[in-house]
Design a binder for these strands. Structure first.
Length: 566
RNA sequence: UGGGGAAUCGUCUAACGGCAGGACAACGGACUCUGACUCCGUCAAUCAAGGUUCGAAUCCUUGUUCCCCAGCCA
């Protein structure tokens, strides 16, 4: 029972950390690390890990969190990813101060520890081909067999390993393996590979200094220990690597032994959080780059208009456990709306314009009205609206015939124009095809800022002036996939892409006050949703807005229910 | 069928032998110049079966279901 509702959320990892600090383990210190591999962009699942690692460091006195690139596989890694990852972590608001590290910083030390292992007879050079090695490894239910090279003399191993480093052997011809137990029921302990040969790739940090590269299972514990990490937090799939993590540190001369603790990764409905699959979406052109606003990448969410605060709150709310999970999108959307509602200034934009001519409003006349930028936060000030004889409203807000529950404009009916007058629809004008092209309305000049006493007008719709409004392109985003868990049940996840994940509207009209809005600025377009000025917006008047998220829409529910009932 | 994990409202999560609580969702209502926000209310869970105990989500036993592992990826 949490007696203080404002207390930081707890979870089993924080409990362990608190115990360790309390008992004086690690000298009472806390030091974590966030260790991404720079082989892709960070996504919402990484945010969970970032919030955990940097979050605990922030919340406990003297706590530190390093940013460390796990860059042991130059084949897949590059500087674009290194830079994007740093930008994303910073965007979330976390700071590694001067502690930016690369596993490659430790290549020489890693090499010396390998020499130590060989000298102790705990590692050997193995000449098995990859195929042979797989065969010798055994299966999940059968033990493996010792490699014929397992009993090589220490001196020979030392000589061979040095020559591996010197570049004398081809890729795949030789590896360095730990000598543990080929019969272990834990496959990770069946003489795991420590080093492999990789010629002809330029490493983004070490260039061509090395042609042998250490494996994750060997690199990670040592990197952690060298940095004085106390708690090494990682995801569940590394749980049965932990014995190897511990073996490495137990068998070399190092005086630090971090504790690896595993938690379950985030799964979010209707999206994917797999770097491999996200990379595929990008490389095959299913989306428009890593920062496509439909992507669950941090750069995509940023471009879409998500706030860092909403992502932090989301990560708090989903918690940290060891249970598999599939979080509903509505939880993310709720934290987003909550944050946006309080901070986004309001504006009016008409997405599907329908012209309205107010017949009893003087031709050529305009008037300036004032509208609050936020209904609850006066400090956000107000802006000027231009009212005119010709305006646009949204096509969705007018119906010739409508059920009683429809509170917007109908033929012969009245509606409030938000922040302006009440109008009445007198006439519907159609083209030859029968499409509604214009409405003739009359306005009640007595209804500005006050309601009429003799009647009740319930509906309120938004509008923009026809001549003075700004043309804009608006991107409406929907879920990227049609399936809650794309790719499950052996189905190709690409076949489950939502073809309507992006709808582009090119004839939208914005209220004039949005003239100088800059990329990254967020607004609530009243009655439509939250929108963010896209980076494609330029100084020459090209305006592009991304819909971050819709408003909660109880009318849509009513309509859907009505439709369902026929 | 080897090893490692996990099972609590629809979803996420709390509980650490002592009233199964919260958030999201859903549903109903109030308010409203945003069918938004806000507020109020309702619905809703301990995988199963045994055992220990005054008392079990929690401890024990036996099952069941799900996830991860056979890359020279991380």
């Amino acid at each position: 029972m949490n007696e203080n509702p404002n207390a930081a959320p707890t979870n089993f990892i924080r409990q362990i950390i608190e115990q360790d600090i309390g008992s004086g383990k690690n000298g009472g210190k806390l030091h974590t690390r966030f260790p991404p591999e720079p082989n892709g962009y960070l996504h919402i699942g990484h945010a969970k890990s970032i919030c955990l690692n940097f979050g605990v460091a922030r919340d406990y006195a003297g706590g530190l969190c390093n940013l460390r690139f796990d860059d042991t596989n130059p084949h897949k890694e590059n500087m674009e990813f290194v830079q994007a990852i740093q930008a994303d972590v910073k965007w979330l608001g976390f700071d590694w101060q001067e502690r930016l590290y690369y596993a490659s910083d430790y290549f020489e030390q890693l090499y010396q520890f390998a020499i130590e292992l060989i000298s102790k007879g705990k590692a050997y050079v193995c000449d098995l081909t990859p195929d042979e090695a797989r065969e010798y490894r055994g299966t999940l239910t059968e033990p493996g067999r010792d490699s014929p090279f397992r009993s090589r003399a220490v001196e020979e191993n030392l000589d061979l390993f040095k020559r591996m480093r010197a570049g004398e052997f081809k890729d795949g011809s030789r590896v360095l393996r730990a000598k543990i137990d080929m019969a272990s029921p834990n496959i990770n302990l069946r003489d795991p590979i420590l080093y492999r040969v990789r010629h002809g790739v330029t490493h983004h940090q070490t260039n061509d200094a090395w042609c042998i590269y250490p494996m994750y299972d060997y690199t990670h514990p040592i990197s952690d220990a060298l940095e004085g990490i106390t708690h090494s937090l990682c995801t569940l799939e590394f749980e049965d690597h932990r014995p190897l993590y511990d073996w490495v540190l137990d068998n070399i001369s190092i005086d630090c032994h971090p504790q690896q603790i595993e938690f379950s990764r985030l799964n979010l409905q209707y999206t994917i959080v797999s770097k491999r699959k996200l990379a595929q979406l990008v490389s095959e052109g299913h989306v428009d780059g890593w920062d496509d606003p439909r992507m669950p990448t941090l750069s995509g969410l940023r471009r879409r208009g998500f706030t860092p605060a909403s992502i932090l709150t989301f990560c708090e709310r989903i918690g940290v456990t060891k249970a598999d999970n599939l979080v509903e999108m509505s939880l993310l959307e709720n934290t987003l709306r909550e944050d946006l509602d309080s901070r986004a200034p309001r504006a009016m934009a008409v997405l599907n314009p329908l012209k309205v001519v107010i017949s009893n409003y003087l031709e050529g006349q305009t008037e300036h009205l004032s509208a609050a930028n936020h209904p609850k936060d006066e400090s956000m000030g107000s802006r000027e609206l231009t009212f005119a004889r010709e305006i646009y409203i949204d096509q969705e807000d007018f119906r010739e015939e409508a059920p009683r529950k429809f509170k917007r404009l109908v033929t012969g009916g009245e509606v409030r124009l938000r922040n302006a007058y009440i109008i009445k629809c007198d006439e519907v004008i159609k083209d030859e095809a029968g499409e509604i092209v214009e409405l003739r309305c009359s306005y009640d000049s007595e209804t500005l800022g006050k309601n009429p006493e003799d009647r009740k007008v319930k509906g309120v719709i938004h509008w923009v002036p026809a001549a003075e409004s700004l043309q804009a392109e608006v991107h409406l985003y929907d879920r990227l996939f049609n399936e809650p868990l794309p790719g499950s049940g052996g189905v190709d996840f690409l076949t489950q892409l939502n073809p309507d994940s992006l709808r582009t509207l090119t004839h939208c009209r914005l209220e004039p006050s949005l003239r100088d809005a800059k990329p990254g600025q967020r607004f609530q377009f009243e009655r439509e949703g939250y929108f963010c000025v896209d980076s494609d917006t330029d100084a020459d008047g090209k305006r592009v807005y991304n819909r971050i998220v819709t408003l909660r829409d109880s009318w849509a529910k009513i309509e859907q229910e009505a439709k369902r009932k026929g």
